[in-house]
Amino acid sequence: MMRYLRFPDERTAIKCCPEWLDGDNWIQPTLRIEIAVRGTLYNNDGEYDEKGNTIKEPTKKVGFFIDVIRGEIPTAAQQYLVNPATPDFVLG
């Protein structure tokens, strides 16, 4: 079952999950742990002209997002679990 984490920022994610880092980078998948670091997400509220040029930048969602595909979530990170377990990332 996929689980979703929303941290206030990347620094908090690093502090709560240092074992998910390999040097300065987030870890690659293993048999024990697989995460998808989404980072900053954006709302679907940007405006673009017919050529694809940005008229209005989309707004950022609040937080730094990591999906846990398999493996244990560190105790310090459990407070950042998103409920319900299948969030609608379209919401701000």
Rank of each mutant, 00 (worst) to 15 (best):
M1E: 09
M2T: 13
R3T: 12
R3I: 07
R3V: 07
R3G: 04
Y4R: 08
L5E: 02
F7I: 11
F7H: 06
P8T: 12
P8D: 07
D9P: 02
E10Q: 14
T12R: 12
A13D: 05
A13E: 05
I14E: 08
I14D: 05
C16K: 04
P18L: 07
P18S: 08
E19A: 07
E19R: 12
L21I: 08
D22Y: 12
G23W: 06
D24Y: 09
D24K: 13
D24I: 09
N25Y: 13
N25F: 11
N25H: 13
W26C: 12
I27E: 07
P29K: 14
T30A: 13
L31H: 07
L31W: 05
R32S: 11
I33G: 03
A36V: 15
R38D: 05
R38V: 05
G39P: 01
T40I: 12
N43K: 14
N43Y: 02
N44W: 03
D45H: 00
D45P: 01
G46Y: 02
G46K: 03
E47L: 15
D49Q: 00
E50L: 11
E50P: 03
K51D: 08
G52I: 08
T54V: 14
I55T: 04
K56L: 15
P58R: 00
K60V: 13
K60R: 14
K60Q: 10
K61M: 04
K61E: 00
K61A: 02
G63K: 00
F64N: 05
F64T: 04
F65E: 04
D67S: 03
D67T: 03
V68M: 00
I69K: 01
I69S: 01
R70W: 14
R70Q: 09
G71P: 04
I73Q: 11
T75N: 06
T75H: 09
A76S: 07
A77C: 06
Q78V: 12
Q78T: 15
Q79N: 07
Q79P: 03
Q79M: 07
Y80E: 03
Y80C: 06
Y80G: 02
Y80W: 08
Y80S: 04
V82T: 08
V82A: 08
N83E: 10
N83K: 15
N83S: 15
T86V: 14
P87S: 11
D88P: 00
V90H: 08
V90L: 13
V90S: 13
V90A: 14
G92C: 12
